[in-house]
Design a protein around this nucleic acid. Structure first.
Lengths: 341, 341
DNA sequence: CCGCTGAGTGTAAGCGCTTCCACTCCTGGA
DNA sequence: TCCAGGAGTGGAAGCGCTTACACTCAGCGG
């Protein structure tokens, strides 16, 4: 009965029997490993076809001792940043013949166990930022599971991929100083390592110009969080209103813009606002957002390739890669001759 | 040597040997299946601890004949819609003790093979919309892999979860008619099943009021796509400008708003614009977007639960679930007394 | 005092594949 | 004519686990 429904799928034994050969030959014919006579291969392929046989992934993996799968741990998917990185990662992983297992830690308690389980299902892991504690990272490293840290400070014996932060932050701050602004505020959480680096860069420049750097106002890195932070920073009772608000990312900046509008403030006339990431909405915002472009997709792609090298053993010494970013000046930071449309 | 680095991890045999018992006992002790004397259990646990043993997922899966993992196929992650659904899915899947394997079809050629591979790695699959052709769906169904279709027309022997579309579209169209608008345009692609349903609902209402329903203008469901569509629809040379543009989703609507602004048109004064989904940005847009709220997170969560029932065999008859949506009237469709802040 | 029962344990058979090794022919060069 | 060697194949040993089944003892009621 050709083309029948096969239920849970045939095994290599049934194929072998039908083709009148041994399972070893079937395996060789299918994987092109070792010689198989043309006629035999033909028979095997026919049997495979008739039984619509697909090798069991579990059997293959157990025998080969590898999963052909990668894991990735990220905090959240709200907002374009993580989503874009994930897409870049998945794309390259698929290209390299690996499946991708995801784990979001968003507001989850038992992250540790979930990560441990995930590690057991993959050949290598990517860990995003500070989603898991150092202890867990250490455990993964010790288990000899290839590991790439994404946007997180490198540790011994693990790869790291991230975008440049400090220097771009310095460039951004310098640019704002060039506008003549002297009072600043920083909006955004501080528990993400990359954000910390951004603040470091900004602070360094401000200090260098005799301006006492402000404490960042923690907030969630969402439009909502930015809106709340904006209300706080820009309302009168907060003390002197800053002339420029540097935000941890674009979403926060969009929220702050909303708050400013609601408070009747003109952006950038009354207050300049900058973001970070250059998400799609940054270009479309009113005013268009001055920001630092981060190669999000590429970040994921590079992580996938680095992981692949580690898994394949092409490279054993850990590598730390920092992708370049770019200051994108638009109108939200003030009038500028070179404004990008 | 306690707490040493274990390399690639011990096997159950080493644990058994160290504890002085058989592997069967180790397994029973660890999985609480069958009686084990308290003292023995103690010894086993100590050995497990000392070797920092974690059962090999492959071994377990092969023996149990299940993966404890779910797959999901989606087109893209740009924009909040798919990301939110994915998050809801992952959350529930994890809660049910399953890992999630993802596959994005975005601009991919060999989708079929990738899907096939994915099917071999999971106990059940979710397929989003029209990411894969009917033939592939059919193949999955025939392989007896539990399958849930998300936002796609149901097929025999597979579950379906989606949000209500037609009735809400009718409500939306009716509301716009209530504003007195008589000329309409539809912006958005037509190859997504749920969008088609929306257009159907809109058309039905318009026809019912003697208005000849417009052909939808296809465009990508992104802000960019919407912007382009908006330029086309709202520019003079396109013929008579519609008084209201109904968009396939919020992103398109945001793009159309941008186009309108750029053309010097007032929204909603000159043209009313509506979206679909109620993404976060819809509330924050200027003007705030009238839209239809779709329970994105819940959509994913329900799919995960439906799939779980199928996998566990709790239910064998396919089920089709339609989640309710809600018309959210804001200011982009025109002045309205009950405007939501 | 004796089977019976059930707690506690070990043996071994899978699960579905890959791959090492051994074996059989058959061919070509000496 | 003979033999080395390679093409082609099958046997069987894993890979790491679960679990059916068999077995050994105690403790128990009769």
């Amino acid at each position: 009965m050709p083309h029948s429904d096969e239920g849970q799928g045939a095994t290599i034994y049934e194929v072998a029997q039908r083709a009148g050969v041994s399972i070893a030959t079937v395996s060789r014919a299918l994987r092109n490993t070792g010689p198989v006579a043309a006629g035999t291969r033909e028979k095997v392929l026919r049997a495979v076809e008739e039984l619509s046989f697909t090798p069991s992934r579990l059997g293959v993996s157990l025998a080969q001792g590898r999963h052909a799968a990668n894991g990735i741990v990220f905090p959240d998917l709200s907002g374009p940043y993580f989503a874009e990185v994930l897409l870049g990662y998945e794309e390259v992983a698929a290209e390299l013949g690996r499946s991708v297992l995801i784990l979001s830690t968003r507001g989850r308690a038992a992250v540790q166990d979930l990560v441990r389980d995930l590690v057991g299902r993959v050949d290598g892991m990517v860990i995003f930022g500070r989603t898991v504690g150092d202890a867990v990272v250490d455990e993964i490293v010790r288990s000899r599971t290839p590991l790439v840290l994404l946007a997180r400070d490198p540790v011994e014996r693990a790869d790291a991929v991230s975008s440049e932060n400090t220097a771009s932050a310095e460039a951004l701050a310098t640019h704002l100083l060039g506008h003549g602004y002297t009072t600043f505020a920083l909006a955004g959480d501080d528990d993400r390592g990359d954000v910390t680096q951004r603040w470091t860069g900004v602070r360094r420049v401000l200090s260098g110009h005799g301006i006492r750097p402000p404490e960042p106002l923690p907030c969630e890195l969402t439009v909502e969080g930015g809106y709340a932070a904006g209300r706080t920073l820009l309302s009168k009772k907060h003390g002197r209103r800053p002339r420029a608000v540097i935000c941890a990312d674009d979403q926060v900046a969009l929220g702050v813009i909303l708050a400013a509008e609601e408070l009747g403030l003109d952006v950038p006339g009354d207050v300049a606002i900058t973001g970070w990431d250059d998400i799609m909405a940054a270009r479309h915002a009113r005013p268009a957002l001055t920001t630092v472009r981060q190669p999000m997709r590429l970040l994921g792609a590079r992580a996938a390739r680095a992981l692949d090298e580690l898994i394949k053993g092409i490279r054993t010494v850990p590598n730390s890669e920092i992708l370049p970013t770019q200051l994108i000046v638009r109108s939200s930071c003030g009038p500028h001759p070179l404004e990008e449309k």
